[in-house]
Write a protein that binds this DNA or RNA. Structure first.
Length: 481
RNA sequence: GUCAGGGUAGCUCAGAUGGUUAGAGCGCAGGACUCAUAAGCCUGAGGUCGCGAGUUCAAUUCUCGCCCCUGAUACCA
């Protein structure tokens, strides 16, 4: 019954962008949908704040890491608010609670942690390790510094992920740990074929000091990733808090395809080692391009969500990204397509269907709605789509109903019925339209909460309550973004 | 290289355990109407379903080969 939804926690070395928005929105739909079903819900988001890169960046800016992360973290908080995200919690990995609980988790994992040597290709110019693949690609020479990579050893703590490889694989294969879409499930199963290797989970403090200390060893701090993953249970008050006991395992964890491995291999390993259940579903979303190009500041094509929201409203933003970015793949944003979707689907089809209904009831019946029947369209497709995190299809299905309503109106021609003077029939037809709109509002509410609210406001009380503005005023020109 | 997924109307995509005229939305063209945000509704044009071969009474759907695209191939948070 209890329902837990999480997003991944963005690393605060950058500002919030469209990709974060997408993830927030998808998780928000899941959370709002569960609440609509009267389930007790905890929906968490947050920020990941430790690590060398953060420390460096802070140094560049001449502020302390703490000051730096405070500032960026706040931007994510504001961003979620801007998008009307209904998160119940916002965790920061620099929260005292997280830091303490991370150490508890480390201790609880002790039996699977050992000290070892990490060997890797290191560039002293970058002061960083590089993967085998990168080194091979560069033929053993760092392009940034034009010097050979050194094979370096470093003392780290390791986590016995290998021990849990088979068990995790079984849970994925049986769908007890359900990874969607299937393509991502296949992808990660490949990794399990040869078994997972143990992973390094700490860094020498002398190299990276901005991190959570390893218990009983002040020469090492926890590797950021290892510690960041813990947020999903520290946020609930692992191990002693009621929320943890009642809400874990998560029902849906929402992550991007770039961090699949951490969430489908490392994190499950940690959970098994702790004797905890795996999340029920891991939903993996794709990336957004802008005009089919990778979004980047250097290209100057980075889109500011705040600008879109300012011009079109938050629900229009939510709508576009939830319906027109494929839920199971990558998608593209471009202003023309956005405008087309806004005008055709939101203003013309949805907005206008409400407008014409309200107008007729006002003109023909002095605003009196009459007996609204229970609209009972088949919602199986819609429900199944949400269950499978196919937000695009769920909205497609809602629009089937929006179109259906417009067709109904054109077939019935209430204006003709009015001329003919058949008051009973007229009232029946118009009341049916209202019932359709209220049903649409219900289906829309996880996706477009404000819009759903506006529709209900107009029709809910038996008498049309006029509003100052239309739902989605047409936009004939496109501001240059 | 290996593994996975994909190449279907101008665009974004759906679909077919092989079987009469291959679907939707956008865009385009035309029509009837008027309650409405010059919105909505109806109709139509447009595709040799990546290329070649095979299996079959029948393939766009199955098999093989080839071409092209995308992703993964493990410690970047």
């Amino acid at each position: 019954m209890n329902y837990l939804v999480t997003t991944s926690i963005p690393y605060v070395n950058g500002e919030p962008h469209l990709g974060h928005a997408l993830e927030f929105l998808m998780a928000d739909v899941v959370a709002r949908n569960a609440r609509a079903q009267k389930k007790p819900v905890i929906f968490t988001i947050g920020t990941d704040e430790h690590g060398g890169k953060i420390a460096e960046k802070a140094l560049e800016l001449g502020v302390t890491p703490k000051e730096f992360t405070d500032q960026i973290s706040q931007k994510y908080r504001d961003f979620a608010k801007l998008l009307n995200i209904s998160n119940d919690r916002f965790i920061r990995t620099t929260d005292a609670g997280h830091e303490q609980r991370a150490q508890l988790i480390w201790k609880a994992l002790q039996k699977d942690i050992y000290k070892g040597n990490y060997t890797g290709w290191y560039c002293t110019g970058d002061e960083a390790f590089f993967t085998e693949a990168v080194v091979k690609e560069n033929k053993g020479v760092c392009p940034n510094h034009n010097r050979k990579y050194d094979l370096l050893e470093e003392e780290n703590y390791f986590f016995r992920l290998s021990q849990y490889s088979q068990k995790i694989q079984e849970l994925i294969e049986s769908d007890e740990f359900n990874i969607i879409p299937a393509t991502r499930r296949n992808e990660i199963l490949q990794v399990f074929k040869d078994g997972l290797e143990d992973i390094s989970i700490s860094r020498p403090k002398e190299k990276i000091s901005w991190g959570i200390p390893v218990p009983n060893d002040n020469t090492q701090v926890m590797y950021v990733w290892f510690e960041a993953l813990m947020n999903y249970i520290t946020v609930l008050g692992y191990p002693e808090h009621d929320d943890f006991k009642k809400f874990w395992p998560a029902n849906v964890q929402v992550v991007g395809k770039d961090i699949l491995r951490f969430h489908a291999a490392v994190w499950p390993g940690m959970l098994l080692a702790l004797g905890l259940e795996l999340p029920k579903t891991l939903y993996v979303h794709g990336f957004i391009t802008v005009n089919n190009q990778k979004m980047s500041k250097s290209l100057g094509n980075d889109v500011k969500p705040s600008q879109i929201i300012e011009e079109f409203g938050v629900d229009a933003f939510r709508y576009y990204f939830l319906r027109h970015i494929p839920s199971y793949g990558d998608g593209d944003y471009n202003p023309e397509r956005f405008l087309a979707a806004y005008n055709n689907e939101l203003a013309n089809e949805l907005g206008n269907s409400m407008q014409r209904t309200a107008a007729m009831i006002t003109q023909y019946q002095n605003g009196i709605i009459g007996n609204v029947p229970e609209a009972e369209h088949d919602q199986a497709l819609y429900r199944e789509a949400i269950e499978n995190c196919q937000f695009d299809r769920a909205l497609d299905d809602v629009w089937e109903q929006v179109r259906g309503l417009n067709q109904f109106i054109d077939e019935e021609k209430p204006w003709s019925i009015n001329k003919a003077g058949d008051k009973d029939h007229l009232s029946e037809v118009l009341a049916y339209q209202v019932s359709c709109l209220l049903e649409i509002a219900n289906m829309l509410s996880p996706f477009m909460p404000e819009t759903a609210q506006k529709i209900r406001y107009v029709f809910e009380e038996g008498v049309i309550r006029p509003t100052k503005t239309t739902l989605f005023p047409r936009k004939d020109t496109l501001k240059k973004v």
